[in-house]
Design a protein around this nucleic acid. Sequence first.
DNA 1: CACGGCCAGGACCGAATAGTCCCGGAAGGC
DNA 2: GCCTTCCGGGACTATTCGGTCCTGGCCGTG
Lengths: 218, 218
Amino acid sequence: MSDEQVAAPTNRRRISQRGIATRERILEAANRLMFVRGVNATTLDDIREASQTSKSQLYHHFADKQELVRALVKYRGALVLQRERGGLERLRSFSGLVRWRNALVKANSLNNGRYGCGLGSMAVELSDQDEQARSMLLETFAAWEKLISDGLHRMRDSGALRPDADPEKLATGLMAALQGGYLLANAAHNVAPMEVALDMALEHIKSYLSEPSGEPTR
Amino acid sequence: MSDEQVAAPTNRRRISQRGIATRERILEAANRLMFVRGVNATTLDDIREASQTSKSQLYHHFADKQELVRALVKYRGALVLQRERGGLERLRSFSGLVRWRNALVKANSLNNGRYGCGLGSMAVELSDQDEQARSMLLETFAAWEKLISDGLHRMRDSGALRPDADPEKLATGLMAALQGGYLLANAAHNVAPMEVALDMALEHIKSYLSEPSGEPTR
DNA sequence: CACGGCCAGGACCGAATAGTCCCGGAAGGC
DNA sequence: GCCTTCCGGGACTATTCGGTCCTGGCCGTG
């Protein structure tokens, strides 16, 4: 772990492109398998096989399973944030939110609602058993919510949202609806509940839109 | 399971009060432990120890761990529905919903948001690994939502809710907000997100209240 | 009061899975 | 072009945990 700190006299490069590729392959396999089976139900042998590597590599790149899981939390968090940045960074209007909603629903409908949210599932499974994983997930959720609330702030600044709208609370509510929607959709093997949940959150945000464009509740 | 059906000639009582008590003790212990550690992270030895019983009892009352987990799903589902029936059966007004919300938040705040919803956590952990458990959880969620939507129907029939309110969708949205709130609160070790989520859902329902009592959006 | 069935206890077994070790071989510097 | 260094492979070990089995004793019944 921290023995990279101990710089040997001769500049030794402990990084190698092949090594990085292997590490990536392991994480990618862990990501796939743990997404569908859950973290605890996935064995290291499953991962080894799926990643076309070996035990020694797993333990070369990760101290133990817990470390691998933590690395996965980081990995998956980065993936989600990157994806979400694409959909939210330029958010400036309500219709942008609708497009964002549609993209999430569409993606999840490919699985018929199964598996839920990569981050949400891990949060449920790990929050009570790995404090460090929990706090990383918490940060990721915060960053994700911030992408949303930043967009809402822009909408408020531009006058699209009324001044009394609270972007942070709206973002939290939307995130909860999203996560709850994922959860119910997973239990139902059907995206419908997720759609209903997101539509509720969007209607709630809609109720904070400024008058000009019409504010009929229905 | 169904071998009680096969009635032997002589009326043999296979039930005994002590046996029932033991079974109950096992389920109660499993309920407690799996609530805080999660299902997969709880071992049968943990349960045996916590319930002051032995291995043979576990396997006397349950065929295997999976059966125990399924029994727990039923057990916990019954508990939740019973609790929720108390809070929702007489629901007739918006303030009743607020009281219901407050009770849930208060209960969860005792854990500082930890552990989440007993049903929701199981749904996440089991949906991808036990089809039967998933469908039982799905039914339980449906029954829970029905308690809510029945109340909303009563409110609509009495004129408290506008005719264009859709009790089923509102109930699904509320349930998603609740589950998402539990999830975020668990990750944060803080009930705040759950409160925000529930308040969003309640405000959404509020927007469907009839005019007379005032309909200020804010 | 004796007998038989059911329940509690816990030692024991086997499989699965996390984690270790050693060797072969490729890559890159001297 | 050799030699050190690090990466990859997979056999091996240890442990945990689900599941079995045998023993003893309590309880109700004839």
